[in-house]
Every structure is written in C-alpha cells, then in structure tokens.
Design a protein around this nucleic acid. Structure first.
Length: 835
RNA sequence: GCCCCGGUAUCCCAACCGGCAGAGGAAGCGGUCUCAAACACCGUCCAGUGUGGGUUCGAAUCCCACCCGGGGCACCA
C-alpha cells in the first residue's frame, strides 16, 4: 500500500499534532456501548413528550462481511439519524438481517451443512463490523427474518392476505430459472434473465401462489404523486413505468360457432375499422379453446416451437413474426367483415385479455404479421405528407372509418377514441377500460431456506390454512444434499413433515411444500422493529402508528421496483385490514449511488475491488465515513479512484488539533468573543440545518471544513486561542462532525472538557443577531460587466443604491459618452446600468 | 422507440427565486519547517458552465433542438 499510514510519524514538536486513530476508535466504541445513547424510547413518543423520527436503511443479506456499499449507505443514513438526535427528536434507527435466501442454501449444499450455519455465522461477522463502524443503531431491536419468532408472523400475515383473497393460487405460464430450479416473479426477471444468477429464464405452466398486487395498481400509481417531492425521481419514474397504466377499451368480437365473444384489449379503439385479423397468445388457454380439430395439430407443433424459446430470444423485436391459423373466423363489429383468428407468440397470455385485434395499418407488429401471412392492410389514420414508414402510429385525421351508424372521418386520434368508445358502449360491443402492465406477485418458491407457506391441502377441503396457534410452521430439518434443487421443493422430501392431517376434518392431508419469496420477509420488517420482541402479534399497531411512517429510507435503487413496490403493497393491504393507519411506508426515500473503482463496478474478475476492512485499517472508521459522505451528492456514484481517504484523515487531524488549542474554560460565555468568527460559526450551523435536511451532506462537510479553516486562522493570526469565539467554533465543529465522524468528535468533545456523548450534546443554538451582516458588497454592472463594488448597508434603499452606483468614479468612467437607458436595481446586491 | 436524471477547472464537486462562475477537497507547482524526508503549515496555478438557438437589463440556472453519459420500460396491443 502506498497510501499514507494513519499512525502519526515521529513527533519532534512538543505539541501533539495528531491523534492515534485506532486508540480513539476502541476507546469510544467501549464507552458508547456502555452509554447506549441511541436507545429509542417508545414511551417518549407514545406520550407525545418528544417528536419522533424513524430512520431506516435497507437491512443486509448476510453474505460474507460488510463491503463498501454497506459502508456508504449506513454512513449517509447515519448523518440524518444523528442529526435528528441532535435536534432533539426521539429517533428510531433499527437494524437487522434479511437472512432467508438462496446463497445460504447453495453454500449448505456445497459444504454438506445447514443453511443456518452459513447465515448466522455471517450475521455475527457483520454485526461485529457494524459495531466497529459506529452507526447509531438501536441494537436492542435487531432480529433476523429467518428466526422462527419472525417468520411466524410472516406466515401469519400470509394467512391474513389469504383470508382477504389477496393471496391465491392459479395455473399459469410462469418464469422459470433453470439454474436456481425455481419460479421467479416478473420483477426478478431482468432482460429475460434471472435477476439473481443471470441464467436465461424459460416459461413453464405451473400452479403457483400469488399476491394480488394488481388490486392496488391504481393506488400504487396515484400515491406516487405524493411521494414525488421526497423520493428520488429515478425510483418514482421506474415505478410508474413498471405499473404501466394504459387507457383503452375492451372490444367483443363474435366468433363463428362460439357462444362467448372473443374480447380483446386495445389502446386504439379508434382504429377498429382497420382490424383485419385477430391474434391470441399461443400459450393461453384461449388458443386451445378456439382451435378447430383440423388445425389442432398445427397449433400443437407451433406450441412445441414456442416453448423451446428462452425469454431472451422471445424478447428480440427484430425476429420475424410467426403464428398459426386457428381455423376460425370472427366478425369485425364495425365493418361486418369476416376476419381470421391466429395464434402467435408476439401476443402475451397474461397482458390484457391475451388476445388482440390486429390493425396492421396502425401497428408495426401487426403490419409485420400481415406481411408474413399476406393479410389485408387498411389505413384508418391519414399519415402526414411524405410518410414513408409502414404502420403509422402517430396522430392524424381518421380515414376509412365510417359505416351506417358511426363516422369518425377527419377526427384526430383522441377524439376518434372517445367517439368509438361511446359508440361501442352504447351498442354493448365493448367498454372503455384501464389496463396495467403490473402483474400479480408470484410469491412461491421451490427452495428450502424461506418461510414455509402455512397451507394444508386436503382432498376434502382444498386449501386449508394452518391454524394460528400452530404457528410458526417450522422448516423441517434438512441439510446438505437434501437441498439439491430438483425442480420441486426440497420440503416435499421431508415425508414426516409433509404428511399431516387436515385442520378442518382431521383426515390425511399434505402440507404445501413451497416457501415464500424472501421479498415477502422484507415487505413488512419495518413494522416489526416497533415491537421486535412481541410474542403476541406481528407488530403493535399503536407503536407502528406512533413511530411510522418511516421519515427517511435510504437504500440502493436496485430495489426500485422490487422491494419498494412490494413494501408499498403490503402497507396498503395492512392498512385496509386496520393494522396500520398510514398509506405509505416511506415518506422520503434517498437512493444512494454505488461505490465503483476506476470507472468500473468493483468485481473479482476485474481485480478492482476495494476491501472495506483494509480501508478501515489504513485510515480508520471516521476517515472512511467522511470520505464516503464528502465525495459527492448521495445519489451519485463514488469512484474510489477519485477520492482521498488520506485527505479526509488529514482534515480530521486538523479538526482534532483545534480541540487541543482551545484555552478558555468549558462554559465560557461566547458573547464577547470575536464577532467575525462567531458569525462564521453561526452561519455554518444555520446553513447545515437546511443542507442536512435536503440531504446535501457533501456540502455540510465542505462547510465544516470552512469553519475549521476559519478557526485555525483565528487562533494563529486572529484573536488567538483564548478567545471565547474559538471555543464556540470548535464545539460547533465537534457537533457537526458527530454526524459523520463519531469517534474523533467524541475525542474532541472530551478534550474540550465535556462529558460524553457529543452525539447527544444537542444542536448549537443559532443567534439570529449574528446572521445579519453589517455590510454587504453590491456589484455595479455596466452592460453586464462588473465595473465597481460598493460596501453598503444590507437594508439600503433602491434609490440610495442607484445614486451611490451612479456616483462611483469607475462607473462614471465606464459610462463616459453613453446614454443611460435603464437602471436595474436589486438592493442590496446589484445594480445593472443599461446603455 | 417512449419516459426520467445528469454534463461547471486536470479530477471529485459548490453556486438559494435568473444577479460577481468558486465554497470545499484531490492532484500539480512554489515555499516554510527538517541534516534530509515524511508529517504539518503557508501560498499559488487552473474553467466561462456539452453544442446551437431563443427569452431577459442580466442565463450554469428558464424555453426549444441536438450531442454525450447513467437509469427505467419495451413484440404490453
């Protein structure tokens, strides 16, 4: 390592010039564990004695030790939590572990062990690292989602959702990860690949458990408007796109030889006159229902082809269109034309109705299909002059769109849509409707290390909930090879566990062998923190309402549509059951950037990883935390190659040195201190308030550095170390640093003659009188160029300022021979003379 | 293709409602200290704000178009 070592060199000076980072860290870690300054007091909040703040950062999955990413998110998050304590709030700042999940299971298979061994071993390691890292967590509230005391309540909540019809089973084509041998939720498929392991996802037809997230689609979308100002725009945008609301219509088509109509969803009811054929999703039950015996064989052959496709191949839009005629015809309700019905894989089974009306004139996909199958194309929107594309999807006047009853000719797309819907509704042929891209959340998994689904399948009574007094439904004790993925749940092999009796009739029955997606665990953990040891309920509603919602949630945007959406869904569902009073779990959300190195994501293969433990050894906790907070705005990525932990440590040493220079006694009244320094101190403290609240933590650090520089100057070449203003300034520095660099801040506080802990010392009181300036610099511009600077009173009138500006010698010179056309005065800062 | 966010000195970043482009840091350079170095301290160099247009007395900031980077959605009818 070529970096500067943190231990000081030989000291020739008698005065200490640097502190021993390691000694300070271990000393204060010990003292603070004794003091417990960050215990959240329920009573203070319930009684209304203190105002609450709930600060939360995403709890980690216990894989190995903490890394730079954890270090960043907790450092940022801790600035806010510690600030709230200093401002006098009662702060709930809990931490725990999201400890169910596949890595532990895979490790168990490799090592012929139990997933719990890996999981709980890593939790111990991470806990130790967190403690050293000095985050203001209230450790008395910690829990792990894999603890039976926790997953008991995950199961209980599942049963509540089941009771309300929000958890249900259905047979449907689902995403299948061949690597992990389990199904995946839509949210866990990224570009056709498994979000966890990267394997190409395929489709399987399976009966699986779902949460009815779509029941809340509109509310999940609407509430985003309220969250917009306090959530990172990236995440709001991502969720909007994910929910994917679209407005359109359901249109019923009569199919020859069939009772029920074939209903399609379309966003372009205005183009119905141009519908020249129909397509149903090949893998939807609808295709099998419609197909004629003559075409059955063709459909089956096509399906074999389709099922072979991976999602990645299917998603390629430049692939030629394929499909098969189903042998049936429908009637276009507006034109009366007989149109053929096809099955194809470009129509999705689980979006809309799984069937479309194809309008090749106005839809590029339909155009391509029509070309392949030689089907008629009718334009119903006039493309603009010079349009040389194929399908025209833009706005324009309707053409070819009239029958005896309705005439859309000449209308723009919007008007034509409205008119068409009104007509269809009037004739009972269709109705306006809203559709969402959001699907229900597939929550069952064919793996071991998760919460078992508390359902018994009885031949007599179907799905029977496990009675509440039998919760938790513990996992059977499986390990090593028992856990090898084989496409069905490992729980199925635990015969003693699976074979049970029906809670309703007592007859023989089988347990559900799937476990829940680990995102279920994390969809309500923030509620458990309010009463983590409650053995009688999932969480105490009174406490949840007192502490919640979370005032600031900090995390990575890799969870923008997964965890954050699921947690929002849970909250709304629990609200409707009367279990919480809030509509949204996270009032504000800050998404922190990533720590990268040399312009690239850290990775083993690139060999550019930065090891957190090593950095802490080299520079200490405070300097690493300061580096991460100071490097950039929280939402930006931090390139470790661009930052200087050595520089951060240098600054901390400078700050610390100030605390040894102060010679005035603790409690000295600063009133008679040097006014200039006092002004800097008070202005810095005041500005820091709004900067912290708007999450501009990097600027807070910069302003603290400024204050340190000003104080240094005051000591060395100003009023001197004995001036009370110096003590006031250094104490402010200690408090400001307590948000970012807790250990050195404590050390400074002690050297200043105070009792620990500086973390609970309280925010300095700002004297308003010190914020007003005696004089300000007014700039005089002539034609936009600065020609003079005037020292004026802050409350100078516009007329006086203008007069003073015009009287100025340099201004006079600049105006020589020119005619003043206009004078813009913005007292007290600026005069602009236009010539 | 549609939708969000960003582009300021060599680098990371500040700049409130449109009002002096620079707060802070890193790197560089020069110096003080030192036998020398490291540390520390002092000083100093460095951009007209991605490009083009517009609005305005005045634009990094507002508007339009484009370029580049990051992210979301995407055969979603």
């Amino acid at each position: 390592m070529s970096d500067q070592p943190k231990t000081p060199g030989t000291d020739h000076d008698e005065r200490e010039t640097s502190y021993d980072v390691t000694a300070v860290e271990s000393k204060w870690q010990r003292v603070l564990e004794e003091l417990q300054p960050f215990r959240a007091d329920d009573e203070a909040v319930l009684s209304g004695r203190k105002e609450k703040r709930y600060a939360l950062t995403m709890f980690p999955y216990p894989s190995g030790d903490l890394h730079m990413g954890h270090a960043e998110v907790t450092a940022l998050h801790d600035v806010i939590a510690r600030y709230w304590w200093q401002r006098g709030y009662e702060v709930l700042n809990p931490m725990g572990w999201d400890s169910f999940g596949l890595p532990a299971e895979n490790a168990a298979i490799r090592n012929d062990a139990h997933p719990a061994d890996y999981t709980y071993g890593n939790i111990d390691t991470q806990l130790e690292s967190f403690r050293r890292y000095g985050v203001s967590f209230d450790w008395s509230r910690r829990f792990n989602t894999s603890d039976p005391e926790y997953y008991r309540w995950t199961q209980w909540l599942f049963l509540r959702l089941h009771e309300k019809g929000l958890a249900y089973r259905k047979n449907s084509p689902v995403n299948w990860c061949p690597q992990d041998q389990t199904v995946l939720a839509n949210e866990q498929v990224v570009d056709g690949a498994c979000e966890r392991c990267g394997a190409e996802v395929t489709k399987r037809e399976l009966t699986q458990w779902y949460f009815r997230t779509t029941a809340y689609a509109q509310e999940l979308l609407d509430s985003l408007d309220d969250l917009q100002p306090t959530w990172s725009s990236k995440v709001v945008n991502a969720q909007r796109n994910w929910i994917g609301r679209s407005e359109g219509a359901h249109v019923d088509f009569v199919v020859e030889g069939r009772e029920e109509p074939l209903t399609v969803y379309t966003t372009r009811p205005d183009t119905l006159f141009g519908a020249t054929f129909m397509v149903v999703a090949a893998d939807a039950p609808l295709a099998a229902e419609l197909v004629t015996p003559e075409q059955q064989e063709a459909l089956d052959a096509y399906l074999v082809e389709v099922r072979k496709e991976t999602e990645i191949a299917r998603l390629a839009t430049d692939r030629p269109k394929t499909g098969v005629f189903l042998g049936v015809h429908a009637t276009n309700p507006l034109t009366g034309t007989r149109i053929p019905v096809y099955a194809a894989d470009y129509v999705l089974a689980d979006y809309g109705t799984g069937a479309i009306m194809a309008v090749p004139g106005q839809d590029q996909r339909d155009w391509e299909f029509a070309q392949v199958f030689d089907l008629p194309i009718i334009r119903t929107v006039q493309p603009p002059e010079g349009f040389d594309g194929e399908a025209y999807t833009g706005d324009g006047p309707a053409i070819n769109s009239a029958n005896d009853e309705i005439d859309l000719s000449g209308m723009g797309v919007d008007e034509a849509k409205r008119t068409a819907i009104t007509y269809l509704e009037g004739r009972g042929l269709g109705r306006g409707t809203v559709n969402y891209r959001l699907r229900d959340w597939l929550l069952s998994r064919q793996r071991y290390w998760g919460a078992p689904i508390p359902i018994v399948h009885c031949p007599e009574h179907g799905e029977v909930p496990v009675p509440e007094d039998q919760l938790p439904l513990l996992l059977p004790d499986l390990r090593g090879a028992d856990l090898k993925p084989k496409g069905t749940s490992p729980l199925g092999a635990a015969t003693d566990w699976v074979e049970t009796t029906c809670p309703t009739c007592g007859g023989p029955a089988r347990r559900d062998t799937d476990t829940m997606d680990t995102f279920v665990d994390s969809s309500w953990y923030f509620l458990r923190y309010v009463s983590p040891h409650d053995e009688t309920q999932a969480f105490d509603t009174r406490l949840a309402n007192a502490w919640g919602p979370i005032d600031l949630y900090v995390g990575g945007d890799e969870h923008a549509v997964l965890h954050l959406l699921y947690a929002r869904f849970f909250t709304k569902a629990l609200r409707d059951m009367g279990l919480v009073a809030w509509d949204e779990p996270f009032s504000a959300y800050l998404s922190q950037g990533k720590v990268i190195n040399g312009g690239r994501k850290m990775s083993k293969s690139l060999g550019n990883g930065v090891n957190l433990g090593e950095q802490l050894e080299l520079f200490g906790v405070d300097a690493v935390r300061l580096t991460l907070v100071f490097a950039s705005p929280p939402e930006d990525n931090i390139d470790w190659a661009d930052v200087s932990p050595a520089g951060a440590l240098k600054f901390l040493q400078r700050a610390w040195r100030l605390s040894g220079d102060v010679t005035s006694a603790p409690g000295t009244d600063p009133a008679d201190g040097d006014r200039a320094l006092r002004q800097v101190t008070h202005r810095t403290v005041r500005d820091a308030e709004s900067l912290v609240e708007s999450h501009r933590f990097n600027v807070v650090v910069a302003r603290t550095m400024e204050l340190v520089n000003a104080t240094r100057k005051a000591i060395d070449s100003g009023p001197g170390a004995a001036d009370p203003a110096v003590r006031e300034a250094v104490e402010a520095v200690a408090v400001l640093l307590s948000l970012v660099a807790p250990y050195v801040a404590e050390e400074m506080w002690e050297r200043l003659g105070h009792e620990p802990s500086v973390a609970r010392a309280g925010w300095p009181t700002v004297e308003e009188s010190l914020l007003v300036q005696e004089s300000v610099t007014a700039v005089v511009q002539v034609r936009g160029k600065v020609r003079a600077r005037l020292e004026v009173a802050p409350d100078i009138s516009e007329a006086d300022l203008e007069a003073a500006a015009l009287a100025d010698e340099a201004v006079q010179r600049a105006l020589e021979g020119a005619e003043v056309r206009k004078v813009v005065v913005r007292a007290p800062k600026l005069v602009n003379i236009v010539v």
